[in-house]
Simulated assay, not measured.
Amino acid sequence: MTSSPETRPFGNSPATCGYSRVLELISNKWTALVMYTLRDGSVRYGEMGRRIDGISKKMLTQTVRKLERDGLVRRHVTPTVPPTVDYSLTPLGETLLQPMKELRQWARVNYPHVEAARADYDLAHGGDSQPTAE
């Protein structure tokens, strides 16, 4: 007897795995930087671009639109000439900051171990940094 995704104790499908769905929200390299930029309140579009090193206007626009669509960021337009556009975290977006902070802390503590493991692996496998499926 096979089990359906609803009866499995752990979801092994990206469509049903809660972790996969959350990682989909924050996995873009710019998402965390945008969210951290907004953590202290409303920020104008241009200021946000200046605060995030290396982000292009195109990537900033795509990132904030995605976050707005996901309900994590609110866009507010003030009808001035030219229009003033501010972004802020929604209450839902604010709830995601704590887990992101914990993940950032984990990375600070443990990422050097990941780098060391990669170097050890590469040495043991002749510099082949691409693991093969067996």
Rank of each mutant, 00 (worst) to 15 (best):
Q98D: 09
R44E: 14
E102I: 08
T78A: 11
T78V: 15
M59L: 02
E134R: 00
P83M: 08
E24S: 13
R69M: 02
R118H: 03
R44Y: 08
G46M: 10
T31F: 08
M48P: 14
L92T: 10
Y121P: 08
A15F: 04
D86Y: 07
Y45P: 09
T95G: 01
T90D: 12
R44F: 12
T80W: 01
G126K: 15
C17I: 05
N110D: 00
G71Q: 07
L89S: 00
Q105W: 08
Y87A: 05
A116V: 06
A124V: 10
R118C: 01
G127T: 07
R50A: 15
G11K: 07
S129N: 02
G41T: 00
F10N: 07
A117V: 02
G49L: 11
G127M: 05
R118K: 08
T90F: 13
S56E: 08
K66S: 10
A124F: 09
A133V: 11
N110L: 00
T61M: 03
W30R: 14
H125G: 02
Q98A: 15
P5L: 04
S88C: 03
Q130M: 03
V43Q: 14
K58C: 04
R75K: 05
T37I: 14
P99M: 10
I26Q: 02
Y121W: 14
P91C: 03
